[in-house]
Design a protein around this nucleic acid. Structure first.
Length: 469
RNA sequence: GCGGCUAUAGUUCAGUGGUAGAACACUGGUUUGUGGUACCAGCUAUGAGGGUUCGAUUCCCUCUAGUCGCCCCA
């Protein structure tokens, strides 16, 4: 009875203390739409980063990192002041000095800014640059859409030839392939240059004006602001009207037509399949001629979530204060690619894990183990440990979980003798070696184990099957 | 920016207008120098704020966050 009372009292006191604690401590969490990329997610991210860097290198693109904060004006002029991104999705703020700045919503204008600011006009053309980094848009989060998300992007500045468009697509597909993503469909269209666009716009406006009643509310607004955007409206009633609307590719000037034809021929040459999508117009103002997107196949009908996209932007450099310089580029959403990798069960990148565990017991041994660790690490041997732990049992348990093949035991006796016990986890046999011999002996065993592991793969799987039975 | 759904332990889920459960994970222990299994013990939760009620984790409202659809995009 009395013991029970004491326990209850203790618990009560604890609960009270907990409540007090909670009252006075706020538990922080991430800002809306922002997230942590946890250790268990990293293999996917790492895989993408590695592939991007490798492919960039192979295609002679050089890395550039731009600041996350830029002047608002850069995107107003570059991305376009009527785009949704600039109009309502930017993280804008004023610095103490009074500058109007924002967190970048995309990379292309920054790259062009850097190109101009650092006199890359004088480099031999085309200037090939790539970047990887976070972008920010104040949008409502949902699957595959975050307020902080990551892009990698490639830009080739200073070349008009359509073969560059083709090469860039080839590069992008190479990345998808190396990552292991399958069934990526290439959606392709040409929206022409300024001249064909003006003509086409007039044509389109009159077409839709005659069918105004059949359009949704948003599209009625778009009709005045940017009739091109009606083409990729997903409202059912609009799609009926769009179905018979004049298409951009039928109204290109001869130069743009030639450019598009050349692109298609190049793609045929490298046996890339594509879907010409007359409704693909893209939401950024700077695009000209070629536009394209990469869709995971299951989204083809709805196209809610493209993995990446890009196109030609022949006027952007001039718009941002440079000389008349054609360019082409694309960007992909890393977050969405990771999502797609998960869906497709694609292999991620797992770095090698330690094969050796260093267990210690007693004060002197604990201190000495730092030295042994350093010695092994310097010789390229990865060592797992838990120096904070006191007993051997839990250290062995951990060694097991990690699946190491060798455990080194350093106790009081060994520390005094300057020796270490080397235990083979599979056979359970152990022997004593001196400090000087440790590296050599460990190396020998790791190599041996690696070899025998290769040899016994077949046998092991056989054993596993037997166990199941 | 608009609409629907959701919020319980580190994770996955139970449950109730009257004391919140499990599994996995984690920590420790089962002769203070040795293993995966087993057993024992411990740790940890009703998102925040109001209202109804004798009493709310449960019912209602607001906020916050997540999720899905629209929109937009990558």
């Amino acid at each position: 009875m009395s013991r029970k009372k004491v326990i209850v009292k203790k618990k009560d006191r604890k609960d009270k203390a907990n409540q007090e604690y909670k009252k006075h401590t706020k538990r922080f969490q991430t800002v809306r739409g922002m997230r942590d990329i946890l250790p268990q997610d990293q293999p996917y991210w790492q895989k993408i980063r590695r592939v991007v860097e490798k492919v960039a290198h192979d295609f002679n693109y050089q890395r550039i990192d731009m600041p996350i904060v830029e002047f608002v004006e850069l995107f107003e002029k570059g991305t376009g002041s009527t785009t949704d991104i600039v109009e309502k999705e930017m993280f804008k703020f004023k610095t103490r000095g009074g500058d109007n700045v924002c967190l970048r919503p995309e990379g292309t204008p920054s790259v062009v800014r850097a190109y101009l600011q650092h006199g890359m006009q004088s480099y031999s053309k085309p200037v090939k640059l790539f970047y990887i980094g976070p972008m920010y848009r104040y949008d409502r989060p949902q699957e595959g859409r975050f307020r902080e998300f990551f892009h990698f992007g490639f830009e080739a500045i200073g070349e008009r030839d359509a073969i560059l468009d083709a090469q860039l697509i080839q590069l992008a597909l190479r990345i998808f392939k190396s990552i292991g993503l399958k069934n990526i469909s290439l959606q392709l269209n040409s929206i022409g240059c300024r001249e064909c666009r003006t003509n086409y716009n007039n044509l389109l406006t009159s077409y839709f004006n005659n069918r105004k009643k059949a359009l949704c509310m948003d599209c009625k607004k778009r009709l005045k602001k940017n009739p091109l955007r009606i083409l990729d409206c997903k409202e059912e009633k609009c799609t009926h009207v769009v179905f018979q609307a004049p298409q951009t590719i039928d109204h290109l000037c001869s130069e743009c037509k030639g450019h598009f034809t050349m692109l298609l021929e190049c793609l045929d040459e490298i046996e890339v399949s594509y879907a010409i999508n007359p409704c693909l117009v893209r939401g950024l103002d700077y695009y000209t001629k070629t536009v394209f997107e990469f869709w995971p196949q299951e989204f083809e009908d709805g196209a809610q979530s493209s993995l990446g996209g890009g196109g030609r932007y022949d006027y952007l450099v001039k718009t941002l204060g440079g000389s008349d310089t054609p360019a082409v580029g694309f960007a992909c959403g890393i977050d969405r690619m990771v999502l797609e990798m998960r869906k497709q069960d694609t292999k991620a990148y797992y770095p090698s894990s330690p094969k050796v565990y260093l267990a210690q017991l007693g004060n002197l041994a604990k201190k000495k183990s730092l030295k042994i660790f350093e010695e092994l690490e310097r010789n390229g041997i990865m060592v797992a440990e838990s120096f904070g732990k006191g007993n051997l049992g839990s250290q062995f348990r951990q060694a097991n979980q990690l699946g190491v093949s060798i455990v080194l035991i350093l106790g009081q006796r060994e520390a005094l003798d300057e020796t270490v016990i080397l235990k083979d986890m599979e056979s359970g046999s152990q022997e004593v070696v001196t400090f000087e011999q440790v590296t050599k002996e460990v190396k020998k065993r790791i190599n041996k184990n690696a070899k025998s592991a290769k040899r016994t793969v077949a046998r092991k799987s056989g054993r596993r099957n037997k166990r199941k039975k």
